[in-house]
Structure formats: structure tokens, C-alpha cells
Nucleic acid binder design. Sequence first.
RNA 1: GGGCGCCUAGCUCAGUUGGUUAGAGCGCUGCCUUCACACGGCAGAGGUCACAGGUUCGAAUCCUGUGGCGCCCACCA
Length: 877
Amino acid sequence: MLENQFVPKDHESQIYEFWLKHDLFKGDANSKAPTYTIVFPPPNVTGVLHMGHALTCTLEDILIRRKRMQGFNTLWIPGTDHAGIATQMVVERNLMKEEKKSRHDLGREKFLEKVWEWKAKSQETIIGQMKKMGGSFDWSRLAFTLDESVSLAVRECFFRLYNEGLVFRDTAITQWCPRCHTVLSDLEVKFKETPGKFWHIKYRLKGDPSQYLVVATTRPETLLGDTAVAVHPDDERFSAFHGKEVMVPLVARAVPIILDGYVDPAFGTGALKITPGHDPNDYLVGKKHNLPIINLMDKNAVLNQEAGPYQGLTREKARVKILEDLIEHDLLVKEEDHTHNIGHCDRCNTVVEPKVSAQWFVKAEELAKEAIRVVEKKEIKIIPEEWEKTYFEWMRNIRPWCISRQLWWGHRIPVWYCEKCEAVHVAVTAPISCTQCKHTQLRQDEDVLDTWFSSGLWPISTLGWPQQSQDLKTFYPTSVLETGFDILFFWVARMIMLGIKMTGKIPFDTVYLHPMVRDEHGQKMSKTKGNVVDPLEISDRLGTDALRFFLSWNAFHGRDMRVSEEGVESCKFFVNKIWNASRFVLMHFGDVKESNVDLSNEVNRWIWTRLNRVKEEVNRSLENYRFFEAAQAIYHFVWSEYCDWFIELIKSKEELEFRKQAKESTAIEVLEEALRLLHPFMPFVTEKLWQEMPIRDHSKISVSIAAYPIVDNTREFPKAEERLARVIRLVEQIRATRGVHQLSPAVEISLSVNSLVGDDLLNELIPFKELIKRVAKVKELTFEKKEYPKETHISVVTGEVKLFIPKEELGDLTQELTRKRKELEDKTEQLKRADEKLRNEKFMSSAPQAVKEGVQKRKVELKREVDALLQYLEDLA
RNA sequence: GGGCGCCUAGCUCAGUUGGUUAGAGCGCUGCCUUCACACGGCAGAGGUCACAGGUUCGAAUCCUGUGGCGCCCACCA
């Protein structure tokens, strides 16, 4: 006997252990069965999982579990990501808090030990959480981006790209984070609109201080690094300055006036100071005109010796001081408000500083060509489709990808420099001696790779590449890549580029991008806002099944998904509903051990047919990644059809007794199929209940490997489906009639039903007489063609039938009157429209037959209803 | 500045090539302590599909424009 409720706390971990014990989730590299593979987007080892991870876990588990039940050789690879900057920052922060030390106090080696310790702890937590979510991962293949095998793949990839000239080292201006002490890729810089000032500064002509031009800038501190002032060649205001030099204010340095069409004469003052060392655009102009580059700042963005008297000041302080000095020397013309976009570090929100340095880059535009082609040719489908446009837009404008980072935590760049001749060696393993001068002292590049470089190889590196492993042969290309759209460029695009380049094959054929998790008001969840809904806490209290069902129910093709505790709670009610329906069915049919389905019974025929419909819907929806539709379809079937109607229809003492005696198994078998259908969504409760089912495939130890339901063509009974639909409609209409007359459901009424569409309908309804009487709480029920006199009966027309109810059994009718008058108005209007349509020649000649028939049918129906309403109102009056 | 998307019931969202009466869940209202479940049952109210034009026999759906909202990319100092 099952307890009153499914208590997640008591059951979930036990059930998960049961799955693990029987090793049900392993991918078989030697299997001949069709494969279905997903690599789980590896969470950062920075802490704990949030709702977004819970969503990923849920959706991927649904896909994987269903395919596993369908007999696919499934593999779902779990793993974690070292997450370069993010993790290093967390550990640095802790180190400072706990030991008051910086990473430099420890040194590279000791610091990395600390990070590894942190990683071990964090990974353990994350794995526990993935298990708690019920994820059917193949734990034997657990991977980490810094595992030796993955690192080998990373070095191999770098090596191959370098040899093809697709990885190169270049001196370029990149964004530097003075807090993280590393360069960032374009994607890691977020621009924010910030109010600032526009300062107009005098640059005096060399040799004639009375002459000057005015330059406008938002960053006066960078004037120390100016190496030119540019004006538009056609700008006549400055023609007197052509070919001359001006003095950089405050420092006694002459710089040339250069002419460049890049300058917009209409913007600012039309004269532009050029600081190639600290502005990306100036850098390009400087390169074109061969201007010297002055690097003004150190790694902390503090001004260095190049800044002369300003050395030692931060960017911010230098600005203040320089402005003071400009005023003092009468060089500041004016100051105006100016809002502009300033780049911030994606990780730590520090204002970035453009800086010139030597870095490693990937020629992304080369790799993008194929990556664009495969999506154009639909070899890779992106769902929802509108993301394809965004993908193309980005890929077609892609720029070199800066992959070196000045961090300690990550894949060391596989490049060695000869200490003697500085020759560059790129290799998978450390070379022993210099290929140029045979010198044996080689120094490895200090930098590490962008964390996304290793993530970009994830589908192949976790399967053993560059080895031609059995795993790679069996499981690659993988099937679907499921993740949030926020990392489409960071991750998905790079996997496509690198996967194709390294293997010649696409890494997956489908990309499914799920919505972003928001709080119930649509706000981004964040710790500082305090609106974080913790998936583990929710699943502890309300159950993992409820959380998972909620997440799939809300996984529609939008951009935001709002998570509220209320929503999860209503899913918990659904868990409870299935649990109790199962209790009821087991209570009565628990000892029915063999399949014995009475297919002559109309109610059975109906529920089996309905079951086929929901199977169809669920399978179709999941094939199209429409999780919300699948979840809704099962919810509706279980609750509204199986519980509200099927169980209610068989619930009478006699019917139940009869079925039990006959050991009729429909109730139990339909439920069992529903459990299998639902299992990918709610693995725990369905496993528990499935184990209780007396009739099922006992050769399968767990529902997770039982067959996923498919349509049973031998159990299609459209006639019964239609008949029961009529019965249901009639019962609903009787109840509604009772409702508007404010009759207590307990009061039984007498009723006569008269068909409006012919005798066949009555004949069809007659066999269900007792059923209808019971379910609709009707004392006397007759099916008659006869019309009752209005002195004694009220007649109500509802669709295909006319109900006659003895007047004395009905209560107050005033409310009813108003309601019916309104109804009459509406129906008359509708009737008019239908009539107009049918008179319209063009409609009659061009509308599809089905539509015309529908309108015709509707018109007849409306006519009938309007007439009935008129009569009804007359009767009452 | 460039691109993408959204606006449907109080809320969150479905609505697949234009076609019969625009749906669901939650919430709301009324009634019901019915023996699986009050985490329940039954019934009900609630929408001129953002707005304005256009195409069409017919538009939530297609086109144009307007308004509002959101996201992504770029970063003219």
C-alpha cells in the first residue's frame, strides 16, 4: 500500500542510487544500435549550480531519457569547466580574505595548488547537484577541461591551427583589464552608456604659441600619449595648419598635424588627438601614418615613466590633475556634458584600458566560412530558427579572436621560445632543444588560453580526440547541443568552427537554445538583488519532479522564462494528482497481474484512443523541442481525461466491482503507459509508481529503460472517441444548466433529452444512460423524441440536444434570464455573419469545401439555438 | 548607428502554410468537508489579438506605417 503522498526527500536519492547501482546510463561504444549523444555544457567550477543549470539538466535529460527508452545507444557526458578568469578571481578573493595574501605572494605553482583544491570541492558539489536534478549522466565519462586528455586535445588543436597559419602572434591593441591583469576578447568587454564630459583643449602651434587649434576629448589624461593631431584634409578651418606641428599641452613635445578622411569634421571640434597607445581607432590611424606608440600605463592602469610628472597617478587621478594644470595654463577652452559608451570587464566590471601588446590570435574569419556554410545548408539546424540570423550576422562580421590571457589558471600556451635565439617553437609536447641553434634552454609562453578555446573543443575532446577512439567513432558527431542563447557566440559558434576544422565533421546537427531564467517579475536573477530562486532549495521542499515539470512546462520558444515558487508548487500538485490516481487504481486493480483489456467496452475504447492522441502529441512535440507542448499534453491527458473522466466513469460500485471481477486491466495499463510517457519529465515519482505496477515489462529493471510509448494502431476507435465526447459534452451541459439554476449538485433532477440532429444520436446515448445519470447526478433520465409542454417543462437547447427539465425542480430564474438575453444577442449577431458569408459569391467560389460546410453547419446550429432561445425567453415570461 | 525580436484574458504564454465559435496554466467568482486526491471536484466570469491603413470573399496570422518594450552587435574621438 502506498503512503498518502510522494515524499521527494525520502525517495529521490534512493531511486537515484538504484539507477546507479544497475548502471543504466552508460553509453556503449561497441553497440550497433543508433546513437544519441549530448555533451552537457560544463558548468564553471566557481561555485554552485543555479536555475539555468537546472533547466539545462532537465531539458537534456528529457531528450536523453526518451531516446534511451526508444532503444537508442544514448550517451550524456557530464563535465565541468575550469573557467579561467572566473575561477582564478574567486580563489584570489578567498585567499585575500582568509590569508591576506595575493597570488603573487604564493607564486604560480602554490597558487595553482589552491585552485585545484577549490576545483575539487566545487566539482564535487556540482556533481551532487546534477544527480539531485535526476540527470541520467554517464558518470564513467566525467570530464574536466584541464584533464590531461582534454589538454592534449587543446594543444593538438593549437598546433594544427598554427601550422596552417590560423593561429598567429601579433602586436595589436586589445582591451586590458587592470583588475584581472589580462587582455580580454571582444566578447568579454561589455559597453555601458556612461555620462561623461567632453573637454575642449588648446594645442598651440609650434613656433607660434598665439596660433592654436582646439581638440575635443573625453579622456584628457591620454594626451600625454598623443603622437599626432588629425584633421580632415578638406576641412578649411584647419588649412593653415597643414604640414605644421603643434605642441602637446603640458609636455614640451611637438607632434605633426596629419590629414585623414577618418576624421568627421562635424563631430567635436573637427580636430582629433591621436593616441595610438590607448585608443583602438587611434591605433589604426597611427599605424597608417607610421606614428610612434606611447604606452602610458602599467598593468594596474597607473601612469608610468612615460607620463613624466604624472607618473604614479591612477588614470582617474591623472585626469583630475591634468585638467587642473590645463586650466592653470589657460589651455582648457570649455567643458560639456557628453554621454558615451565605456567598455567594462565582463567579469569584474572594471573599466577596461586599450593597450598595445603582443598576443595570440585565431583567424576566426577563415574558420567562420565553413561554419556559416553548414548552417546555411541546414546541416546544423538552430532552434528557435530566428537565432540563425543573429548567428550569420555575427559570423559574417567576425574579427580575429584573441586567445591569450595573462592568467595562471588555464591551459598554458604550447609555445616555447629559445632563450638564446628567441626562435618560436609550437608543439604538443615541450621540445628538448631549439631547432634553430640547438640551444637547450627553452622558455614556455607565460600566458594561458582563453577558457572558451578549450570549451570550443568539448564535443571532440571529451570523446578522446585527437585519438581515433572508439568513443569518437561511435558517438561523434553528437546529436544536439542544448544551451542558453547567451553563449551562442562564446561557445556554440566556436564549437562549430573548431569541430569542423579538427574533424571535418559538424560537431552536432541541432542547436537548441533555451530561454534565459528570470524571476517572477522578469528580472535577471542575481545575488545582489536577492531574487535568486535556488533550484536545490526548491527541489528539497517541493520535489525535483515538480521543479523539472515546471521548467519543461515553461520551456517555450521565447527569450525569458519566469520562475516562481508558485508555479513549481502547482506542478507539485500534479505530482500529487498522479500519485493519488495511482493509489486509487492500485487499490482496486493492484492484483490484476495479466493484460486483459475489454475492447468491446466503449469507455475503454475511448481512453485507449485518447491515449494514442497524447502519445502522438508528446512524441511530435519532443522531436521539435517543444517541451512546453509535450508537458501540457501529458498534463491534460492525465488530469482532465484519465482522472476527471475515465476514473470517474468507472467509479460506481457496480462498474468497479464488475471490472475487478473480470480482472479488466485498462485502468492499470493506461496508467502504466502514462507513467512511461511522463518519465523523462518526472523521473522519480514515475519510477516509484512504475515499480508498483502489476502489469508491465518485468524484464526491465527500471522504467528508465522501458519502452517509450508509441501509437497502438490496434486501439484506434474514432467512433467510440466521438460517442464519449458526446456523452461528456451532454454531462457538462446538464451540469452547467444545473449551475445556472443554482441547484446544489446534491439535488437530483429529472431530465429528458431530445435530439436535434436525428434519432441516431439518441440511440447512441441510450447505452450510456446509467453512466450519465450517475455522473451528472440525474434522478430520472429519459431519451425521447417528444416535446414537453412549456407549462410544465423548461427546455434548454445545448448544441445537438434539447433538455427538458420539470419546472418545479428549478429554482430562481432571474439571473438566468439576463444571461440568456445576452446569449440571444450574441447568437443572432453570429447567425447574421454566417448568413452573409454564405450569400457572398466570392466566398462560395474560393473558400475550401470544409470551411463552407463548417459555416453551413454552424448556421443551421445557430438558427436552432436562436429559435430555442426565443422560445425559452417567451416561456419564462 | 546596424541587426533581431516582442505587444493575444488580471499574470505567464500557445495559436505550424490566412479559413468554422482565438486556447492553456495560474489567478479570480460561485457552489460542494462525494468513500484516490481540498495538493480535491463542479460550474462560471474574463479578450474590438498594441494602434492606423492596405491586400483578400475572409487577417491575431500577410504587407506598410505609428507607438511602446526588450535583446544582440558596433563604439566617432
